[in-house]
């Protein structure tokens, strides 16, 4: 039997040491993703280091913004007063995800590290380069309805499923991690990877590293924000396409803008070009449409996800309209 060991250290150092000892060790936080994957035989850790007793449960104000500990529950973040006040976009993204029960268990660190929901990744009898490098990609010519339209490779066309991460990408968050060589901060845009030739690597987090917290810099995006999620039922489904939109508007002029998309790429897909197309412009549907057109440059669909080429720009426009209060 896959007799894995289980430990529950109270000190960060001990957690890191245990992880460093064996590559087949995994951290476990809420367990809402990892346990599923273990049951399906996708993940087979030899050791589980339960990090829930590490002191990473706080939401604190810092000089530059807000720091959210890696172990804060998704529901706690979503309901936090400071988050609601300063980063309502993040709260909106969180409550659109999963179900209330799952959000109570799921942690910030676990949400960032959650793995794709690609059918082929989950079915151990079938090829998947992410699960078993070199075995092929079943989705490429298979059922690819929920798959990527940006940044994919011929090795993998899976998408990152998180809602929270889309908002964090838009908000320019940083991921504070620690490892044998001490702490480092990784910008959100550099945290997740594109699949390239190594789809088995979802992120740039080192194998010995632990996520400590997420830092969100103070920003003017407190009012004109909207997280829009399109899915196949009204709740409890992953995004087919989602958009995090944040605008800083003064006298109908867009002073600053942030846009990111979910459900379209192997990582939260920040739309820097589209943001540029918005900055300095007057608020109008036409401007939003221009931005959406910029955002969609380079998009390419597969057999079953062509609808995303239309759904994505429509979603961008609508999210921006909602953010701007145009309804």
């Amino acid at each position: 039997m896959n007799q894995f060991e289980y430990t529950r250290p109270t000190k960060q150092k001990a957690a890191l040491e245990q992880k460093a000892k064996s590559p087949a060790t995994k951290f476990i936080a809420g367990g809402t993703n990892l346990i599923d994957l273990m049951k399906h035989g996708v993940e087979n850790p030899q050791k589980l280091v339960d990090i829930n007793r590490l002191p990473l449960h706080k939401i604190e104000q810092t000089k530059t913004g807000l720091r959210i500990g890696a172990l804060v529950a998704n529901s706690t973040v979503a309901e936090d007063k400071q988050v609601l006040e300063k980063f309502p976009l993040l709260s909106q993204a969180l409550v659109s995800g999963a179900s209330a029960q799952l959000r109570h268990m799921a942690t910030v660190g676990g949400n960032i590290m959650q793995r794709t929901r690609c059918y082929y990744f989950y079915d151990t009898a079938l090829p998947c380069n992410k699960r078993e490098p070199g075995s092929g990609c079943g989705a490429l010519e298979g059922i690819n309805r929920i798959h990527a339209i940006f940044g994919f490779s011929d090795k993998c066309i899976a998408v990152h499923p998180s809602d929270m991460c889309v908002a964090l990408a838009a908000l320019d968050a940083k991921v504070l991690v620690t490892g044998p060589n001490g702490d480092r901060s990784i910008s959100f845009l550099d945290f997740h990877r594109l699949p390239g030739d190594q789809p088995e690597k979802d992120t740039n987090l080192g194998p010995d590293e632990l996520i400590l917290a997420v830092d969100i810099p103070a920003s003017p995006f407190t009012k004109n924000v909207h997280y829009l999620k399109v899915r196949e039922r009204a709740s409890y489904a992953f995004a087919l396409v989602s958009v995090a939109a944040a605008l800083d508007i003064e006298n109908n002029t867009i002073r600053n803008a942030r846009l990111a998309m979910g459900g379209v790429a192997h990582k939260p897909w920040r739309l820097l070009g589209a943001e540029k197309a918005l900055i300095g412009k007057q608020v109008s549907e036409e401007v939003f449409q221009q931005a959406a057109a910029v955002a969609m440059q380079g998009a390419k669909a597969f057999e079953h996800n062509e609808y995303k080429l239309k759904l994505a720009p429509n979603s961008i426009v609508q999210a921006l309209k909602n953010a701007a209060g145009m309804a």
Binding site: Y119, E141, G142, I143, R145, R233, A234, S235
Partner: peptide, 24 residues
């Protein structure tokens, strides 16, 4: 979802095989 290459139904769990939720 039938994958005709593998002859197999692919969305074999209740996260991906959708039935109405309360909100629907």
């Amino acid at each position: 979802f039938m994958d005709n290459t593998f002859g197999r139904f692919m969305n074999h769990n209740l996260a991906e095989y959708h039935v109405p939720v309360n909100a629907d």
